[in-house]
Design a protein around this nucleic acid. Structure first.
Lengths: 344, 344
DNA sequence: GCTTAGCGTGCAAACGTTTGCACCTAGCTA
DNA sequence: TAGCTAGGTGCAAACGTTTGCACGCTAAGC
């Protein structure tokens, strides 16, 4: 396939010196005379020498590679996290090997095998939606390969992780609506075994309690968090004898679905119905009215997770107590929830 | 770092056979007695043996890795393409090493070095916006590392590439507007040294010509193709003595920017102004009205590019005539351009 | 009974690096 | 002058595989 590339041995032959000298000259490590270093680097540049990282990795027992397992790489959230991971990793001289689990725990297991096989030095994981147990990660642990989770984690396992404070996100979104004068606030939530949805809901309930408001089950709609679920959810809410005056949706997509129905029925946002989403998707700025939403700092999460992983790798401290990094979400207030501005 | 993992040599010692026998037993290659194969695989499973792909890669002169250079991994288009690439590559037993050029040609050059250094067997590239010359790719070529470009390519270089028929996309978008009865159609375009924008514009002009309509420079707005550019563009158009009755935007983002201004001014879409975007971004379905747009089959592009690359690698035919694969875009007709449905 | 074939296995080299150790040559001290 | 230090270099082993070749053994053909 690829043409035979110049190796360190070739350089050595051409210069009539030994491979070890060449190696040391190039890595600048040992005491090699300046003259030799110059000769070597000059020739290296001339023939376009490039070190074979496979060989070096084999010898040094390192691969300079990190593995990443995500449910999928498309979509706003994960693609931005991966961007952050790649940026932080390449800054530290690491390559990134990316695998998709496609939300399937069996794939996830294979991905881990694949990555260990490729000799990655550390692994970053966001769990698939179908992962309920931890068994396949034990193998990684047994090999002492540092492991850091991000965003989606399993309850009850003490692991290194970088997560968003979803409870705070839910709380702030709901509190903002309350501050705007909304008093009957509904909530769209997702599967409760996922930490993210459970916590967002907790935040919602905490805020209501703080305002002395009751938590009404009929106002909490559980669904798949996509657009269709939002449309269906808002219809259900509007059919209530006492419909809500605002919705905090655990996802921007559901919020968008709800907005479409509201438009169809001639209801005004934010006057008749306040609306807050979650994730600060790109399109939240494109909706009419623009959607208030919670930003998750996706890229920062990727960078933080990578830095944590690199730190663990360096300290060889993976047996120390696992670290939890909790990022604080930001509320981006836009027109969809600004009743006070709409009716000053 | 990671605990010393069982190697083929360990297996050999435990079974009192030679490493070569173990190797062959595991790869099932040569004629090894069934009994031995069973013994070996059994022990391998027991100790959780995992082949060291670095060593194997070094010996075989293969790495089982493909390199990808993209301007960035976030955003709808590239994240989907990368999804397709990863899927196709992993199906063929390859890992994917991803680099971001951040739209910077210097980074792009470094990325290529990095990938060659990592011994990738082939490289997929979508050019950065600041890449005007081809010099840094010559080095890759000299090493006989198969190279496939996708989406963004440079004019005048004969290379393997998978691209979208952007001209057809522009043509179909414009023709659709014409069919809907719009007659004074404006166009948002981007930097003309990028094939994609140039071709979309060509398609636009071709359609107008076909309908015997003049191409008016004042209706063609060149910009950075983001939301702000769209807002600015539509304002400029509305200020004309004879404003257009429709806009074909080379990007959904600019279309969204334009839509916001139209809303503000109380102009109705599609009645007063038809609107068609390009890229079929996620949010095009979330806008009000939903935006007609051109779909680029991003994931298919990733898969096609990867398959082409793998084929070239297999055939060792990189010296054969470069192949061009042209994907046909699809028009997704939605409310923003349906004048006939709005006024039946 | 001797050759031949073929099956199963082992030896050893190779892939391109890195690195502990030993060696050599100067220049210095005692 | 012998002994020592230190700077510069080379030797060779090692990382974990793969693979061409050769070896030994058994069974079949003459």
């Amino acid at each position: 396939m690829a043409k035979k590339r110049a190796s360190i041995t070739d350089l050595a032959k051409q210069l009539n010196i030994s491979v070890s000298t060449v190696s040391r000259a190039l890595s600048g490590h040992s005491a090699i005379s300046e003259a030799t270093v110059k000769r070597v680097t000059a020739l290296a540049k001339e023939v376009g020498y490039q070190p074979n990282s496979l060989a070096s990795g084999l010898r040094k027992g390192r691969s300079n590679m990190l593995g990443v397992v995500v449910p999928h790489i498309d979509g706003n959230f994960f693609s931005q996290v991966v961007k952050g991971i790649e940026a932080a990793a390449s800054k530290a001289g690491y390559h990134v090997l990316i695998c998709q689990s496609n939300e399937d725990v069996a794939h996830e297991r294979e991905n881990l095998e694949t990555l260990m096989n490729a000799q990655v030095e550390g692994i970053l994981v966001s769990l698939s939606r179908t992962t309920h147990e931890f068994k396949h990660f034990e193998k990684v642990r047994k090999r002492d390969i540092p492991l850091v989770f991000f965003d989606r984690i399993l309850d009850g396992y003490d692991v290194n992780a970088v997560v968003l404070d979803d409870r705070a996100g839910g709380y702030r979104a709901t509190k903002h609506l309350l501050d705007q004068g909304y008093r009957r606030i509904a909530h769209f939530t997702g599967p409760q075994y996922l930490n993210i949805y459970k916590l967002r809901r907790q935040g919602y309930e905490d805020a209501l309690r703080e305002y002395g408001l009751p938590i009404e089950e009929e106002l909490i709609i559980s669904g798949s968090m996509d657009m269709a679920a939002g449309s269906a959810g808002i219809k259900q809410l509007l059919a209530l004898p006492q419909p809500p005056d605002a919705v905090f949706s655990g996802s921007d997509f559901s919020a968008a679905g709800a907005l479409q129905v509201l438009h169809e029925r001639g209801l005004r946002v934010p006057e008749d119905m306040g609306l807050v989403g979650f994730s600060n998707e790109l399109f939240s700025r494109l909706m009419v009215p623009m959607l208030t939403s919670i930003d998750q700092h996706c890229e920062l999460m990727g960078r933080s997770a990578t830095r944590l992983l690199l730190q663990i790798m360096q300290e060889q401290s993976q047996h120390a107590a696992p670290q939890h990094i909790v990022l604080q979400p930001d509320l981006f207030v836009r027109a969809s929830s600004l009743r006070s501005a709409a009716n000053p």
